[in-house]
Amino acid sequence: MSTFPTRLIEGYQTFMSGRYLAEKNRYRQLAETGQEPHTMVIACCDSRSAPETVFDCGPGEMFVVRNVANLVPPYQPDDNLHATSAALEFAVQSLKIRQIVVMGHGRCGGIKAALDPDATPLSPGDFIGHWVRLLKPAAQQIQDSQLLTSGERQIALERISIRNSIANLRTFPCVKILEERGKLQIHGAWFDISTGELWVMDTQSGDFYRPELPLA
């Protein structure tokens, strides 16, 4: 019989004596009334860029779906398994989310795999390879540019993939209709793990810029 990881038990103990103790009424309220998060974040499953940590959100504030390279596939109403699409459907149709943020990050392994045409599959299923092919057209254009360094190619595709995911979001009828009615806002963001910098996407131009932070 395997032992549950000690580090996780210790972390749980700290959570119960710290954050849960301070917010136990909030947790009990959420248990009784259900969740009403204000924002959905589609983020990468990279352990270094947790949205709840980056945005300092408490319980019940944020509905998060994470996958390799924070990708949103296009709308495909078929019988295949669509985890990200299912989470999106629930957030928009059931939770009545008012904001969606596609959040990418620096040094993304999924983006690196998309840029490497010679990448060796990690398993016979090559699940990562199939998944990041969503970015194949953009990755091909960046790979062919001799004016960019490898680091510049990486950052370029990390940000282009955010715009690509936003475009795919708008192929979902429920998203497109609600956005056109002004009941849903879509945003892009990019987090630099190394420096902690947050860059947000201008909704009109698609350019990324660092937002001004309020004075402490």
Rank of each mutant, 00 (worst) to 15 (best):
S161H: 04
I128R: 00
S17N: 11
S145M: 10
M103K: 02
P124G: 02
K24D: 14
V64G: 09
I142R: 06
V175Y: 05
D79P: 00
G109W: 09
P5D: 11
D144M: 09
F172G: 07
G206E: 08
K24M: 12
N164V: 14
N70L: 02
A83Y: 05
G110C: 03
W199D: 08
K136E: 15
G34S: 12
R210I: 08
Q76H: 14
R159P: 09
W190C: 01
I162E: 00
R170V: 01
P124L: 04
D144N: 10
F191K: 04
F208A: 14
V102K: 08
P37L: 05
V175E: 02
Q13D: 15
A86S: 14
K183D: 05
G188H: 01
N70T: 00
C108L: 02
C57M: 12
I166L: 07
Q140H: 13
F55C: 04
G196V: 07
G109Q: 05
W190E: 02
R26I: 08
A138Y: 14
A167P: 01
T84Y: 02
R159D: 04
M40T: 09
P124N: 03
V54S: 04
V72Q: 03
L213G: 00
A216F: 13
R66P: 08
A22H: 07
Q146C: 04
